[in-house]
Structures are given as C-alpha cells and as structure tokens.
C-alpha cells in the first residue's frame, strides 16, 4: 500500500485544512496510509553561513524521502500560501531535496467561496522551483470552499458531490503515483541539478 505524507499548511489549532487531511486519512485508509505532518513548530526560514537546517525539518524531509507521495493542504492568507508553509518549504529545500520528483497532490480549504484557489496556483509555482522540483499532479484542483460549514460533527464531508470529486481525484493521484514511479530515467540528473543549484550562487 502506498504511504503518503500529508502536510498541514496552517499553524492554527482550528485549521479546517487539518480537518480535511484527517478526513482524507480516515476516508482513504483502505487504499493508502496517510500520515499527518505538522510544520507549526519550525522557525521562520533564515539563511546562515553554515547552512544550518533544524532537526525537525530534517526529520520531515526523511519522512517525505521514504514516502510514495505528499499531500499538501494550504489555506490562503492574502491571496497566497501561508508564511508558515512557505517557510517550511524553504527549509525542505535548503541543502536537502526530499521533494525532487515526489508526486504531490495539492488541496486546500478556505472559509470563503474561492477555496484557496490563488494560494494553490502560487504553490504550484513554488513546488516547481529548482530546489523543490516536485511532480505536481497536473490538471487537478481540489478547492474546499466554505470549510467551516463543510464537515459534520464526526469530521466527515457533508456534501456528497464534494466527496465524489475528492474520491475521483484521489484515485487519479494513486494512478499518478504509479506512473511517476516509472519515470525514473532523469531522476539522478535532476537530483544533482537541485543539489548544485543555489539561490545564492551562479
């Protein structure tokens, strides 16, 4: 069975993005093992002369390395991904490159009606940058709007149509992960390139 790491893109206790990932973990338990990972205890990303990376970031990187894929749930703050998620991704590409060629499914929940659409679009660009180089599932988008009203008391999604959409996308993601495993020819080169790249050097 595939093992996925699910990153909660918010540091708020009341995050509906965490709720969404918890639901996915339970709902898809027969087809994949999903482990939720919190990033709220990581400090703000800061470059240093000795390229220090906190142990917590290294631990998360190891989990991602060992996984078959990553699911990210991002809120939207100011039309963009949260600083805490942006910061985590910066740590997870600072001299370590766990995301290279890793299949990623992007999801997101928002209180309003747009469901974090703009944050997700930016997240795609971020994950496509040289030191992350993740394999983002193409042509797919899961936007959970009005997230405060979306779950019942047991934490299940209320709207059948939304469940159906998520089911379909998750099945596609499983296929995408399988296909991705075949696409290995350039992996070594890509890893090397990511390692050799630096925002500081040319």
């Amino acid at each position: 069975m595939n093992k996925f790491i699910a990153i909660v893109g918010s540091n708020s206790q009341k995050s509906t993005n965490r709720e969404l990932l918890k639901y996915m973990k339970r709902h898809f338990q027969d087809s994949a093992e999903i482990e939720l990972v919190e990033i709220k205890d990581l400090p703000i990303f800061k470059k240093s002369a000795d390229k220090y990376v906190p142990q917590l970031a290294k631990d998360i990187a190891k989990k991602i390395e060992d996984s078959d894929g990553v699911i990210i749930a991002t809120p939207e703050y100011d039309h963009s991904v949260t600083a805490v998620l942006s910061s985590a991704l910066a740590w997870l590409s600072y001299g370590i490159h766990p995301f290279v060629d890793k299949p990623v499914m992007i999801t997101g929940a928002s209180y309003g009606s747009l469901g974090s659409s703009r944050a997700q679009a930016q997240l795609r660009q971020i994950l496509d940058s040289p030191e992350l180089k993740a394999r983002i599932m193409p042509s797919s988008e899961f936007l959970l709007a009005h997230s405060l009203q979306a779950f019942d008391d047991d934490g299940n999604l209320k709207d059948e149509d939304v469940v159906k959409e998520l089911d379909g996308l998750f099945q596609d993601f499983l296929q995408f992960v399988n296909i991705s495993k075949q696409l290995n020819n350039a992996k070594d080169v890509t890893k090397q390139k990511a390692a050799a790249f630096s925002w500081d050097k040319d």
């Binding site: 703000i44 990303f45 100011d78 991904v81 942006s86 910061s87 991704l89 925002w199």
Partner: peptide
C-alpha cells in the same frame, strides 16, 4: 524582495500577514 523558490521569502510574507 529577493526570490526564493519562485516566491517571496517566508519572512516577508510573514510580516505582511501580521500587518493584514
């Protein structure tokens, strides 16, 4: 703004979050 991972540094975004 510098550019990191094709976006603004988290530290800058963080300041804007507090100030919004």
């Amino acid at each position: 703004t510098p550019e990191h991972n094709h976006t603004v540094p988290a530290a800058l975004k963080n300041v804007i979050e507090w100030l919004s």
